[in-house]
Protein backbone atom coordinates (compact mmCIF):
# COMPACT_ATOMS: atom_id res chain seq x y z
CA UNK A 1 0.00 0.00 0.00
CA UNK A 2 1.30 3.42 -0.98
CA UNK A 3 1.47 5.53 2.20
CA UNK A 4 3.99 8.04 0.96
CA UNK A 5 3.19 11.70 1.60
CA UNK A 6 2.94 13.98 -1.44
CA UNK A 7 3.87 17.54 -0.51
CA UNK A 8 3.11 20.47 -2.82
CA UNK A 9 6.09 22.74 -3.22
CA UNK A 10 5.45 25.92 -1.27
CA UNK A 11 6.92 28.26 -3.88
CA UNK A 12 4.39 27.67 -6.67
CA UNK A 13 1.99 30.31 -7.96
CA UNK A 14 -1.44 28.84 -8.62
CA UNK A 15 -4.94 30.16 -9.24
CA UNK A 16 -8.39 28.71 -9.79
CA UNK A 17 -9.77 29.88 -13.09
CA UNK A 18 -13.13 28.78 -14.45
CA UNK A 19 -13.06 24.96 -14.40
CA UNK A 20 -9.24 24.83 -14.31
CA UNK A 21 -6.48 25.19 -11.81
CA UNK A 22 -3.50 27.02 -13.28
CA UNK A 23 0.02 26.61 -11.91
CA UNK A 24 3.23 28.49 -12.69
CA UNK A 25 6.42 26.75 -11.60
CA UNK A 26 8.57 29.55 -10.21
CA UNK A 27 11.66 27.42 -10.65
CA UNK A 28 11.50 27.25 -14.42
CA UNK A 29 8.55 29.44 -15.51
CA UNK A 30 6.60 26.43 -16.84
CA UNK A 31 2.83 26.67 -16.92
CA UNK A 32 0.44 23.84 -16.05
CA UNK A 33 -3.32 23.74 -16.56
CA UNK A 34 -5.15 21.15 -14.43
CA UNK A 35 -8.60 19.78 -15.23
CA UNK A 36 -11.46 19.55 -12.74
CA UNK A 37 -10.28 16.24 -11.24
CA UNK A 38 -6.63 17.34 -11.24
CA UNK A 39 -7.63 20.59 -9.55
CA UNK A 40 -9.62 18.63 -6.95
CA UNK A 41 -6.60 16.45 -6.11
CA UNK A 42 -4.39 19.56 -5.99
CA UNK A 43 -6.71 21.20 -3.44
CA UNK A 44 -6.74 17.99 -1.37
CA UNK A 45 -2.93 18.04 -1.28
CA UNK A 46 -2.98 21.74 -0.37
CA UNK A 47 -5.39 21.02 2.50
CA UNK A 48 -3.11 18.29 3.85
CA UNK A 49 -4.86 15.19 2.52
CA UNK A 50 -1.63 14.06 0.95
CA UNK A 51 -1.54 10.26 0.92
CA UNK A 52 -2.58 8.08 -2.00
CA UNK A 53 -5.29 6.34 0.04
CA UNK A 54 -6.59 9.69 1.32
CA UNK A 55 -6.80 11.05 -2.23
CA UNK A 56 -8.61 7.92 -3.48
CA UNK A 57 -11.14 8.16 -0.61
CA UNK A 58 -11.80 11.82 -1.42
CA UNK A 59 -12.28 11.03 -5.12
CA UNK A 60 -14.82 8.30 -4.24
CA UNK A 61 -16.79 10.77 -2.10
CA UNK A 62 -16.65 13.65 -4.61
CA UNK A 63 -17.13 11.83 -7.91
CA UNK A 64 -19.29 8.93 -9.02
CA UNK A 65 -16.41 6.68 -9.94
CA UNK A 66 -15.37 3.05 -9.48
CA UNK A 67 -12.68 2.42 -6.88
CA UNK A 68 -10.27 0.91 -9.43
CA UNK A 69 -10.59 3.95 -11.68
CA UNK A 70 -10.12 6.34 -8.76
CA UNK A 71 -6.95 4.48 -7.75
CA UNK A 72 -5.51 4.48 -11.27
CA UNK A 73 -6.38 8.19 -11.76
CA UNK A 74 -4.73 9.07 -8.46
CA UNK A 75 -1.68 6.93 -9.35
CA UNK A 76 -1.24 8.59 -12.73
CA UNK A 77 -1.83 12.15 -11.56
CA UNK A 78 0.39 11.97 -8.48
CA UNK A 79 3.17 10.38 -10.51
CA UNK A 80 2.83 13.15 -13.11
CA UNK A 81 3.15 15.81 -10.40
CA UNK A 82 6.27 14.07 -9.14
CA UNK A 83 7.72 13.76 -12.65
CA UNK A 84 7.34 17.49 -13.40
CA UNK A 85 8.65 18.41 -9.97
CA UNK A 86 5.59 20.12 -8.53
CA UNK A 87 5.40 17.81 -5.49
CA UNK A 88 7.95 16.19 -3.26
CA UNK A 89 7.51 12.65 -1.96
CA UNK A 90 8.25 12.04 1.70
Amino acid sequence: MDERHYQLREDLAWREFEDRLLVVDSGNGQFHSLTEVGGFIWRQLHEGNNTHSGIVSALLVEFEVEADLARSDADAFLQRLVDVGLVRVE
Partner: peptide
Protein backbone atom coordinates in the same frame (compact mmCIF):
# COMPACT_ATOMS: atom_id res chain seq x y z
CA UNK B 1 9.97 37.32 -18.69
CA UNK B 2 12.56 34.93 -17.27
CA UNK B 3 11.73 33.55 -13.84
CA UNK B 4 14.81 31.33 -13.69
CA UNK B 5 17.39 32.61 -11.25
CA UNK B 6 15.11 35.11 -9.54
CA UNK B 7 14.91 33.01 -6.38
CA UNK B 8 11.84 31.00 -5.47
CA UNK B 9 10.01 33.64 -3.39
CA UNK B 10 10.41 36.46 -5.89
CA UNK B 11 9.66 34.14 -8.83
CA UNK B 12 6.50 32.84 -7.09
CA UNK B 13 5.37 36.41 -6.32
CA UNK B 14 5.89 37.55 -9.89
CA UNK B 15 4.48 34.30 -11.34
CA UNK B 16 1.26 34.91 -9.37
CA UNK B 17 0.92 38.50 -10.56
CA UNK B 18 1.54 37.39 -14.16
CA UNK B 19 -1.15 34.70 -13.85
CA UNK B 20 -3.61 37.27 -12.44
CA UNK B 21 -2.88 39.66 -15.31
CA UNK B 22 -3.24 36.93 -17.95
CA UNK B 23 -6.56 35.82 -16.42
Amino acid sequence: LMLDGLGRDLAAEIGGVVLDTCM
